[in-house]
Design a protein around this nucleic acid. Sequence first.
DNA 1: TGAAATGTTGGGGCG
DNA 2: ACGCCCCAACATTTC
Length: 493
Amino acid sequence: MTLAISKSSASQPPVILWFRKDLRLSDNPALQAALKTGQPILPLFIFDDQDHTIKRLLGGASRWWLHKSLLTLQSQLPNLCLRRGNAKTILLELIQKVGATQIFMNRRYGTSIDPDESVLQEFFQTYGIICQVSKGNLLSDPVTMLNQSGKPYQIFSSYWNHCLKILRPERPHPSPQYIPTIQETSDKLEAWDLLPVAPNWAAGFEEFWTPGERGAHERLSTFVEENLVGYQLQRNFPANERTSRLSPHLHWGEISPNQIWHVIRAQQVQNPASSQDSHTFLAEIGWREFAYYLAYHFPHMSDDPLRPQFKAFPWRYDPEGLKAWQKGLTGYPIVDAGMRELWHTGWMHNRVRMIVASFLVKHLLIPWQDGERWFWDTLVDADLASNAMNWQWAAGCGVDAAPYFRIFNPTLQAEKFDPEGAYIRLWVPELKALPNLYIHKPWQAPMPILEKAGIQIGKTYPYPIVDHAAARARALGAYQQMKIENLTYLSTD
DNA sequence: TGAAATGTTGGGGCG
DNA sequence: ACGCCCCAACATTTC
């Protein structure tokens, strides 16, 4: 039987299925389209870490995830061909070698690592090769979604309300029963050196993550069964671990937003009590859509502030402050806990991301781009569009962003969202023995209490690197200065 | 998806 | 009993 298939396959030219940010077999429109040809498929993944004209090389944590995810995809598709180098060159070489007639892929909007699809389509057309581009990684189409004056939406709520009104996501495709593939020489995954060595900072990642399609769906089921009811409220408490943690799976397309949409919608019908929670959760999927939408309409979002006034913002150059923030040694327990969770797990709870981001840009006045780059390198869910949008949100220079004068008080935020200090004690164990009253502000603890808890401020745990009130005043001053410079610029222009 | 400063109000202590 | 003041508690404004 298998022999018969391979024989009949051999008589037909193959097509190439190019996996990129869609490392899944279910609900994969490019795969469906490739199957429809009836021709054998060469499944391909290209790792391009040489091309310096592309936007951004993969960060460290992303490389770890990619390695693990490709391993699982390879176990599903043993003929998955791995190649390293320039995408166009490799595709062209393979087309000529195996006599492929078409290339299938899913569109990736926004700032991307691979070359733009339309460029590829034009390029391969000159060789008589059809590039079929399917829509599979977003629910909405950034190109056509415009507001009433024909411009891109700049406010999330109006954008998402419009999406909710017009979106009718199709029922997701199940995994195909059988995929006729052909074998082609493949790199050894290990040869790509995607995993860190000396130091192996990803040593702890495995206990938190199961990259791959199956892991993604298990995560979704667990979330829906255990954490969807009460999500709206509970998601804010980092110690509760009640967020979905789907972000890295979504980033690599191990699960599609379409699949998530349908599971959550079904839940909404089945369990009306969770309706508001479902709505809130889907809005998070909406933020991801919005990020890609903005990245499409504002391609410089990852580098430049969306509000041009912020080009005049007096950021500080402070490598030591940046280092203290990166290492989780700022002296503010909630900030340090978040930064250490990030380092140990490749992920950080969303509420805490907002707090640490606010701290970097407002308390330290360090450019948001520095924070964005650190997240890019250390997050397993590092996503250029989401990362840039959210950092601009935190810095106050994005569209629909928090106004600059909204400055999180890290102590108050911690008291509000980690009242028992459980999150702090997990990630900043040197403060473990402090009573709740001081767990978020150890510098205020009386000496006997510190001694009893075995803490020496300045030795076993740092003094706050900035005083909150002073830092707040300084940030507001910087904002004023920016406004003045913009006025001056305008008047002399 | 703020926090701090400032304003207002009303209950209760107290001379 | 009355007016005065204090200050939570809440509301509004400002950053």
